[in-house]
C-alpha cells in the first residue's frame, strides 16, 4: 500500500522589493514524504503553489553552498535538512540572517564577494618558478595545516551565525578569515605579510568576541572560529615583533 501523504506547514518570510515595504510571512501547506528536504519543500511551493517564490539552490547535495536559509532560526543548508524532523510542527524558513534580503529567501552577497576578493584567495608564490623547475612538494604535515580550512563552500551559514557580523557588516567575518588562513599557512604561499594587514585592520579579527556559533553551524567542519582566533594571536605577535625588526615596522 502506498504511504499516506502527509502535509506540513511551511512558513516563509516573503519580501518583494517592488511591492513590499517590509518582509511578511506566508504559510503554505506542503504535502511531503519522509525523504524530502526543506529545499524540496520550497521547490514544491514554487512549482505548485506560488511561482513567484525566490530562492537559490543548485547541487541539492550539500556541496555548492547556495541553498543556505534560516530554518527555525538556525542557519542551515536547506538541501541537507529534512521536513520529517519538524513534522507535525510548522517549519519556519527565512533568508540567511545578517544579510540584506534581495527578495524572499535570496540574500545580497556582494559584501562577501568583496571580502573574498580582498583576501587574495589563491597561492602567491614566494618566488617566481618555471614549469621546468618541477612541481611544488608538500609533506602530509604541511597539508594538514590548511586542509580543513580549504573545505569551505562559501555557504555563508557562519555569517548568519555571527552576531558581530550582524552588528558590523564591515567585519571580514568567519569564512573569509578561514580562507585567508588557509593560504597564509600554505607552505607554497608567500603573501602572509599582505594578508596580515587585513587581519590587523579595523575590519579584522578583533571584531570577534569568540561567540563560536559560526563553527557550530558550519556544514563542512571548517571551524572558522579557530582560524579567526588563531589570527588574533598572529596579529598580536605581528604587532609586537615589528618593534624588534630593523625597519621598526616601517613599510
Amino acid at each position: 500500500m502506498a504511504e499516506q501523504p502527509k502535509t506540513i506547514e511551511i512558513e516563509v518570510l516573503r519580501y518583494h522589493p517592488e511591492k513590499d515595504k517590509t518582509p511578511h510571512t506566508q504559510v503554505f501547506e506542503v504535502p511531503f514524504t519522509d525523504d524530502m528536504s526543506v529545499l524540496q519543500g520550497v521547490q514544491y511551493i514554487k512549482d505548485y503553489l506560488d511561482g513567484s517564490l525566490s530562492f537559490r539552490w543548485s547541487c541539492r547535495m550539500a556541496i555548492c553552498g547556495s541553498c543556505g536559509m534560516m530554518i527555525n532560526g538556525i542557519p542551515s543548508l536547506s538541501c541537507q535538512t529534512f521536513l520529517r524532523d519538524y513534522y507535525p510542527a510548522r517549519v519556519r524558513v527565512e533568508a540567511l540572517a545578517h544579510f540584506p534580503i534581495e527578495r524572499d529567501l535570496v540574500i545580497g552577497m556582494e559584501g562577501f564577494i568583496e571580502k573574498l576578493e580582498s583576501i587574495q584567495p589563491y597561492i602567491i608564490p614566494k618566488e617566481p618558478r618555471t614549469p621546468a623547475q618541477g612541481e611544488y612538494l608538500q609533506t602530509p604535515e604541511q597539508l594538514a595545516k590548511y586542509e580543513q580550512f580549504s573545505s569551505c563552500i562559501n555557504c555563508l551559514l557562519c555569517y548568519a551565525a555571527c552576531p558581530q557580523f550582524g552588528l558590523n557588516p564591515g567585519f571580514i567575518g568567519p569564512a573569509a578569515t578561514a580562507l585567508l588562513h588557509r593560504y597564509n599557512v600554505d607552505s607554497r604561499d608567500g603573501a602572509q605579510a599582505e594578508r596580515m594587514e587585513l587581519i590587523n585592520s579595523e575590519e579584522g579579527v578583533f571584531n570577534c568576541t569568540a561567540v563560536g556559533y559560526c563553527s557550530e553551524v558550519c556544514p563542512k567542519h571548517v571551524d572558522p572560529a579557530n582560524a579567526v582566533n588563531q589570527n588574533k594571536t598572529n596579529s598580536a605577535a605581528d604587532y609586537f615583533l615589528r618593534f624588534l625588526s630593523p625597519k621598526g615596522g616601517a613599510k
Binding site: 522589493p17 540584506p100 534580503i101 534581495e102 561567540v211 556559533y213
Partner: peptide, 24 residues
Amino acid sequence: NKRRPYVRPMDGWWRKNPYFVEYM
C-alpha cells in the same frame, strides 16, 4: 534599478538563539 535590499534590524539578537543566550 528595481533592487531595494531589506536590512533586518538586530534588536534583541541575543534572545533569538539559545546559543547566544548562553554566550551572553
